[in-house]
Structure formats: C-alpha cells, structure tokens
C-alpha cells in the first residue's frame, strides 16, 4: 500500500532544479535582488542560526505540525471504542461546511490570533481543529465505500454492529486514513506557517516574515530550502511508519 513514488519524483525534480539553480545563479547570471547565489546562501547560514534563532523556530513549528497527525489519529481511533456511531457519522454540518470550510478555517485562524495573541497553544488548538474536522469529513465519506458485505457476513456469524465497526471497518479504513493524515500533515505546514506569519512572534512563519522585512533574501530562500528538506524528510518518515503499521494489502475501494 505504502507508495513512495511521489517522494521519488519530487527528489528527482528537486535534484534537477538545484543543479540548474546552482549553474544559473552561481556561474551565469549576475548577482540580483530576486534570488541569491548559492554561495551567499551558504554565507548566511551563520546569521540564520545566531540572529534568527532558526533552531528554536523550526523546532517549535515542526513540533506543532508533527503533533497533528499523532493527535488526529488518536482522536479518530479512540472514538471508535466509545462511540462507533460517532466514529462514522456523516452529519449535515459536515456537508454544509464542506464547500466553504477553507474560508471557515481562515476566519477561525484570524479569530484565534486576535483573541489569544501569539500563543503556540492557540496555534496547536487551531491546527487540531482543522485536522480533526478534515479527518472527520474524510472518514464519513470513505466509509460509504467500504464493501457492505463485511457487515452482512459478519453479522450473520453473530458479530454485533458495534464490534464490526470497531474491529473491522476501522481497520479497513486505516490505510486510507493514513493517506489522508499524510496529506493533512503536509497541509498543516502551510496552515502553521500562515498562522505564525500573521501572529508574527514565533516559529518559522515569524522568522520568514522578519527576513522579508529586512529584505534578507538569502535568509528567506535558505529557510525555505531547509523547510522543504525538513518537510520532505518528515513526510518520508511518516510513510515509513505507515509501512510498518499497515503490512497487509487492503481491498480496493472503488
């Protein structure tokens, strides 16, 4: 199930892009204010660590984003023990929210920044809400695609609906839930950066905003490059964990 092809393609494209970038901006094009040369980026490394507190910034943002899939997964899967129906319910509010939910998230984000100021806990709560709701909408829509014969056959063998949802349907959904959490994990980086840029006091978002204010293009580009590497490696690690947890081949969901 675990598919690394997206990561492999990205690595190939990134390698080509880096090669072309180095050739263009280091050897062919003259120094400019739009994109820095690789040498000036390497020179900025020291500044990034000493003046921009890069370690604490990336540490905080990464921690917040990494917590999302773990907490989201736990939230979804713990509910199946206490309320299997809730685990699967597809309610009207989710349907209504579906089309406008990204506007709702932006509104919620602005509200939380205004209300709680620059609090990393507020950011964590915001990311949790977004990831939780996304996960819920996804589960409710995917469960409709599960082969209903699992219900009929297992029920005929004496299992209750609660047991089937808890022990079979939740397991059948797991590979697709992982796929979704993986996407959410990548999207959460975007949401986290946006939140931190608007609140403007901590994390990678604030660091990039500061670099932009000082017109420090080398720092900005360097932090973007490092972030891409961090996102890539953490995404790959996530895939490896998925591979360890889901060792079986699932049925195809049509």
């Amino acid at each position: 199930m675990t598919d690394y092809s997206g990561y492999k393609s990205f690595a190939k494209i990134a390698a080509w892009f880096t090669f072309i970038y180095i050739i263009l901006f280091q050897f062919i094009l003259p120094p400019n204010q739009i994109l820095p040369s690789p040498a000036s980026m390497i020179d900025s490394l020291g500044t990034l660590f000493s003046e921009y507190y890069f370690i604490s910034a990336i540490g905080l943002t990464s921690l917040l984003v990494v917590l999302i899939p773990i907490l989201g997964f736990l939230c979804c899967y713990v509910t199946r023990y206490y309320s299997p129906k809730l685990f699967l319910t597809y309610d009207l509010s989710a349907t209504l929210l579906f089309s406008f939910r990204f506007f709702s998230y932006v509104f919620l984000m602005l509200f939380m920044i205004y209300w709680f100021g620059s609090s990393w806990i507020a950011e964590l709560v915001f990311l949790m809400l977004v990831a939780g709701l996304e996960q819920k909408i996804f589960l409710a829509s995917e469960v409709r695609k599960i082969n209903k014969d699992y219900f009929y056959t297992l029920k005929s063998l004496g299992l209750t609906e609660k047991e089937i949802i808890r022990d079979v349907v939740s397991k059948l959904l797991k590979p697709y839930v992982f796929e979704k959490i993986h996407i959410l994990f990548l999207l959460s980086w975007g949401w986290a950066l946006l939140y931190e840029m608007i609140s403007g006091s901590y994390g990678m978002g604030a660091l990039m905003l500061q670099a932009l204010k000082y017109n420090d293009i080398s720092i900005l580009t360097l932090s973007i490059v490092i972030m891409i590497v961090v996102i890539y490696v953490s995404g790959l690690l996530f895939k490896l964990i998925e591979y360890k947890i889901i060792s079986w081949i699932p049925d195809e969901i049509k």
Partner: peptide, 15 residues
C-alpha cells in the same frame, strides 16, 4: 443455530 452467509465478494480479513 445461525445461518452463515458467504457473500459474492470476499470478506475474510487480510490483516
């Protein structure tokens, strides 16, 4: 006693 159903699509659990 139960009437056990075997569906036209497989429902054994792969894990």
């Amino acid at each position: 006693r139960i009437s056990a159903l075997i569906a036209d699509t497989p429902t054994s659990l792969q894990w």
